[in-house]
Design a protein around this nucleic acid. Structure first.
Lengths: 335, 335
DNA sequence: ATGAAAGCGCTAACAG
DNA sequence: CTGTTAGCGCTTTCAT
């Protein structure tokens, strides 16, 4: 155990470089030689030393992922992103080094220390202080989210502006005239988290364009928080007929509160959830929803990162178009 | 940018080794020399190359964390573990490489490739196939959970057997005679996930010891799953007066179902939650709960790992004693 | 208290 | 198609 490339070379009766090349495939090797080398590798249980390889090749085969590990909203969504990034990274033979969002210095540390080939950063805010920092690193970075000025960085995200519009559109098409958006906790809004602001923009503009009445309420991620938000909506717009809910944790409580207030879904109030499909389906009533395709976004993020690492491709911004899945929680409003 | 230790040495007018030693503190350096070196480091923005360091020292300053990134139960708990491990690792100047539970080969890859100094493995099952593999690695491993035979590995976990007993004890003390445990999804049970089985053992033995009637029901993590579980309990034990619920996702729905079935908490049915405190407090009624101290467990896991890396301490198993926090959801049963 | 130098294990010219 | 060899940037004896 713990053999080196030279051990393998000796055992196979070839030179070090030959072993290196059968491993990397960077030059043609005759079938018999390759055979002998592979046998030796097997026999010795040889594994290249990652540090040595990184030192010699200046590639680490590791991706940094900066994720918000607070227990805010969307734990499930965050987990799906993280799982998606890890899975996608593996398809490029990369591993994932996990950083938390609250340790900004971590980016600098792992990048300048040449621990990673690229960085993927989640939960980006409009004026995110990490963005200028990331721009100065020698490794490429991909943002999940959309800062006001991405500079030289790549970005991917669901087009939350389009999400807001699409939800409004769907409800307007059904004939609703007074609708509300129940969104993220106030703290998330105040951080100017990009998705939270963009969905509001889309909603607001959609409402204006369709000539509807619409209100927006933040919503804390708890039972009382949800009840409060619903009550504020009902106070501001007593004859509201539809809700867009973008808060996974609050969703069950929003439903519970509506029931308590005597409003049936969908008979009295239609509801569009913005959430992963499993959350929309786990409720007592399957909810019409706009999917947050965490897995796809994560995959695209990793692909963009690898494209820059492997092929030095330029930065780009990709916004994924939302899709609405019709389920049981939306109907035309009853007269 | 991208300067080497030799650049620093030259700039400071000292030898390479001197720079290395001011960095590591492994031998005394005169104040003025240290001063000059530190200035040079600042001036050049020098960062040691992680790969080179790993190659020369055979230490990586990286910990592997194998986490179950499925969207099963307990996403919030898993996130807390992960966040806790990352935070604790940082206090030892280590970073965290994230592996998913479903890629067993990952352990071998990162360990044999000398990418990490130690491994922390979550969500261990009674007969976990990873355990024997981990035992053969040259790096130490710490399990979060308790396999039947840990071999040479360290283990940490909440003492779930004691959790079961403590919950029963509390309810028995209040005067309850017929109680139920609503637990993990069937799939989790069938994997023989260690915590799920241990809490059942504790519950069952506690019930027997106190001469109570008790039933155990698995519970899927959804609205219908929770309703089913509650209904099965009510069918098997119609005059049940207390519930222990160990399923974070189902918790809101269990409460909702009880209300629908006309059972008030705590007037008709007392409820003990086994969950992180924030979940117990996020419900409409603050729940009496036995805390899952994810952060503490994570910290201990990392400390054990580092103790083995730094001081070659022997493996040990540590089970954390549970604490019950009395809140509003448990009372003596009404006549 | 400091320096010189021998590796650590691998990659990638360069040379056949 | 294969071998030789010079580094990659750092740690750590061994000297002084």
């Amino acid at each position: 155990m713990a053999s080196t490339i030279d051990d393998v070379a000796r055992a196979a009766g070839v030179s070090t470089s030959t072993v290196s090349y059968v491993l990397s495939g960077k030059r043609p090797i005759s079938a018999p030689t390759r055979e002998r080398v592979e046998r030796a590798i097997q026999a010795l249980g040889y594994r290249p030393h990652a540090g040595a390889r990184a030192l010699a090749s200046s590639r680490t085969d590791v991706l940094a992922l900066m994720a918000p590990l607070r227990v805010d909203v969307d734990v499930a969504v965050i987990m799906q992103f993280v799982a998606g990034v890890v899975t996608a990274a593996r398809t490029f033979d990369h591993d994932v080094l996990l950083l938390t969002s609250d340790e900004i210095a971590g980016m600098e540390r792992v990048a300048s220390g040449s621990m990673v080939d690229a960085l993927v950063v989640m939960d980006v805010e409009a004026e995110d202080p990490r963005v200028p920092l990331l721009g100065r690193l020698s490794q490429p970075a991909v943002l999940i989210g959309l800062p006001r000025d991405p500079g030289p960085l790549s970005c991917v995200d669901l087009d939350f502006d389009a999400v807001g519009r699409l939800a409004v559109q769907h409800l307007a098409d059904l004939g609703h005239r007074r609708i509300a958006l129940i969104g993220s906790p106030r703290a998330v809004m105040e951080r100017h988290t990009s998705y939270a602001e963009r969905i509001i923009d889309g909603f607001t503009h959609g409402v204006a364009a369709a000539g509807l009445e619409g209100v927006v309420e933040p919503c804390e991620s708890s039972s009382v928080g949800a009840a409060d938000a619903v009550d504020r909506v009902l106070a501001r717009l007593p004859d509201v007929t539809a809700l867009v809910v973008h808060n996974e944790v609050a969703l069950p409580w929003v439903l519970a509160t509506l029931r308590e207030r005597g409003r049936d879904v969908p008979d009295d109030i239609s509801l569009v959830a913005v959430s992963p499909p499993d959350v929309a389906l786990g409720q007592p009533l399957p909810l019409t929803s706009i999917d947050i395709p965490a897995h796809t976004i994560a995959t695209v993020a990793v692909e963009m990162a690898m494209a820059r690492v492997l092929r030095a491709e330029p930065a780009e911004t990709r916004l994924l178009a939302p899709r609405l899945v019709l389920r049981a929680s939306t109907t035309p409003p009853h007269a």
